[in-house]
C-alpha cells in the first residue's frame, strides 16, 4: 500500500513539475469551450442548449492529452522494468498511475466546468450537474485511455493510435454524461438515472482498464 501511494505521489510530483499534464489539459479544455461561441454566434439559447455537449467533448479530448506519455515515458527510460521487479503488482502500478493522471486531468476539468459553463450561458443547475457528471465520468475516460496507452507504450508517436482506439469506447460515457447534464435542467428523466449509469460505467471501465492495461504492459519488453 505504501508503494502504491509513493507511486501516486511520484507521478503527481512529475506531472506538476514538468507542467505537461495538468495545466495543458485545462488550457486545452478552455480553448475548446471559448472557440465554440465564436463558431456558433451570439445565439444564447442555442449555446446554453448545447453547452453540456461542448463541455463533455472538451473533457473527452482534453483527457487524451498526456495519455500517450502515461506508460511510454516509463517504458522508454527503463522505469517499467524496475516497476515490474517490485512487490506492487502491475495492476496496482496501473491503478496508481491512472489515479495520478485523473487527479491532474479529470479532477481539474470537473472543478473548472462551472466556471467554463459561464462562457456557454449555462444555467446554475446545469453547471452543477456538469461538474458532478464530469467528476463521476472522467475516471472512466482515464481508464479507457490507459488501455490504449499500455498497448502503445512501446511505440513512438502512439498518441494518434490511442485516440483512434479510445474515442469509440468513450462514446457511452459521453452519451450518459451529456444526458445527466440535460436531465438536470429539464426533460423527462430524473438526474439520478443517467448519473448512476455513468457511475456504473466508471466502475466497469476501472476493472477492464486496470486488468487490460496490466496485460498490455506485460507484453512490453
Amino acid at each position: 500500500m505504501s508503494g502504491f501511494l509513493a507511486l501516486v505521489r511520484r507521478d503527481l510530483a512529475l506531472s506538476l513539475r514538468i507542467g505537461g499534464g495538468a495545466s495543458f489539459a485545462l488550457v486545452f479544455f478552455l480553448m475548446i469551450v471559448t472557440l465554440t461561441p465564436f463558431a456558433i454566434g451570439p445565439d444564447l439559447n442555442l449555446l446554453s442548449r448545447i453547452a453540456p455537449a461542448i463541455l463533455w467533448i472538451g473533457a473527452v479530448l482534453a483527457t487524451l492529452i498526456g495519455l500517450d506519455r502515461l506508460f511510454q515515458a516509463d517504458a522508454e527510460d527503463g522505469t517499467l522494468d524496475l516497476l515490474k521487479a517490485g512487490r506492487l503488482p502491475l495492476e496496482g502500478v496501473v491503478l496508481a498511475k491512472c489515479l495520478a493522471h485523473w487527479l491532474t486531468t479529470g479532477l481539474p476539468l470537473a472543478l473548472a466546468a462551472p466556471l467554463f459553463g459561464l462562457l456557454l450561458a449555462m444555467e446554475p443547475a446545469g453547471m452543477a450537474a456538469a461538474a458532478l457528471s464530469l467528476l463521476v465520468g472522467t475516471p472512466a475516460l482515464t481508464f479507457i485511455g490507459a488501455v490504449g496507452a499500455a498497448l502503445t507504450a512501446g511505440i513512438r508517436r502512439g498518441g494518434v493510435l490511442i485516440a483512434i482506439m479510445a474515442l469509440p469506447l468513450m462514446i457511452p460515457v459521453l452519451i450518459f454524461g451529456v444526458a445527466a447534464c440535460n436531465a438536470a435542467v429539464g426533460g423527462t428523466i430524473p438526474f439520478a438515472t443517467p448519473l448512476a449509469i455513468l457511475g456504473a460505467l466508471t466502475l466497469i471501465f476501472a476493472v477492464i482498464g486496470v486488468i487490460g492495461s496490466a496485460a498490455g504492459l506485460r507484453q512490453v519488453d
Binding site: G3, L7, L82
Partner: peptide, 9 residues
Amino acid sequence: GWQAIVFAG
C-alpha cells in the same frame, strides 16, 4: 521513490 515503490521492506 525506488525504495518505497520497488524495494519496499
